[in-house]
Design a protein around this nucleic acid. Structure first.
Lengths: 210, 210
DNA sequence: AGTGCGCTCGTACTAAGTACGGTCACGGTA
DNA sequence: TACCGTGACCGTACTTAGTACGAGCGCACT
């Protein structure tokens, strides 16, 4: 095992969080992952808070940056889709966003690039702020809903939703029952497919208001 | 101090979380709030997980239900605004959403009512699912961004953003600097004002696609 | 008075964050 | 070569948290 370093500590923390959720990330579990003893970690980071800040920034680093000279709509769409995939890969990152208020360098670079595209596309500053807040709200919120779904993907939907629908029927929630039986339980259903509908609607609205 | 009860335990937990964040909600802090010893709590709830599920459902209970016979657009707007305010009052609830997969009765009632409005407004099942995912994504994501802002309200924006802008300038993030100086630092700025822009855009898009 | 029951609590075990100081390898200097 | 400073790693232990276990205690019903 090579020398420890801040970089290796953060990478290790990311791996532990991905494997077992943020709840499983403890200084001890991280030390084990790294093949060292708990206190060794503290020579490379100041404390657990700094680790959390660090891995959030690592997550932002994974999101594709829009390129400054492409079609704005296509670039924004690409980065939104990328962000959604990244947040699905690291669902614990969403819960962290709420508590971290000191953005890292990758986070800043990311936001600067997105704003750059919008300004370059002709959005005035105020409108760029609107667009930026709207787009990120949508992406974060969608990722949050994906993360809180009781099922993982399109596979095991039936076995999870079927009993829920029965319960909803028994307790008198007709619209939930209808949604389950007429939509969610139909073959081919995948919540992830909802993403493009909303993104298109938002991009259309922004185009119209530009 | 009256008899303890599940209800009082959950209300107490909500109060503790509101006062100091979920991080400050421990069995011991909760017991102190309730004027009892820690282990007494366990006679009314099975464990901390059940407390967390319980207070998330309490939060949903606070969101205004849309009324079934109003104008769908107005009802949906009202419940979205209400949800946003409730989530601003209990920002810790967002972090919990991701981990709780067993919705409580208030949560189910809430979702059933929203779906009911959309179906009543003439949205086909599939389109109601789209609209529902989009609206909730927006509301949750917006609340998440509000919660992660480094400033609390329109008051102390300047003292927080000013140094950030300076740093952004020094590190070469021109669009962040522009956004700060030309928009955020202007008098009257309030991030909360962004909410209506996005909500209107979404409602327009949904109207058009209905 | 006796009995059972439900609520409360004292004690204690385990897991986690981390302060403090020790150990040890290495590299530069006299 | 002998010495010593430095940086990385770790052993120990203190504090805070969740919670298992079982004891005490008051009240309702016999």
């Amino acid at each position: 095992m090579a020398q420890l370093s801040r970089e290796r500590v953060l990478r290790g923390a990311l791996a532990v969080a991905d494997a077992g959720g943020i709840g499983s990330l403890t200084i001890r579990s991280l030390a084990q992952e790294l093949g060292v003893k708990p206190m060794s970690v503290y020579h490379h980071v100041a404390g657990k808070e700094e680790i959390l800040d660090g891995i959030v920034d690592l997550v932002f680093q994974e999101i594709e940056l829009p390129s400054a000279d492409g079609d704005w709509r296509e670039e924004i769409r690409r980065r939104a889709s990328s962000a959604r995939l990244v947040l699905r890969r690291h669902p614990w990152a969403l819960g962290l966003l709420e508590s971290r208020t000191t953005p890292g360098p990758a986070t800043l670079r990311h936001h600067d690039a997105v704003l750059g595209i919008l300004r370059g596309a002709g959005f005035p500053v105020r409108m760029a702020a609107h667009a930026y807040a709207l787009l990120d709200s949508y992406v974060y919120g969608f990722a949050l809903q994906e993360a809180s779904l009781p099922f993982d993907g399109p596979q095991n939907v039936t076995e999870i939703v079927e009993p829920m629908a029965q319960q909803a029927f028994a307790e008198g929630y007709p619209h939930l029952v209808e949604m389950a039986t007429e939509h969610v339980l139909k073959p081919g259903y995948d919540f992830g497919d909802e993403f493009d509908f909303g993104l298109d609607l938002i991009l259309d609205g922004l185009t119209r208001r530009r």
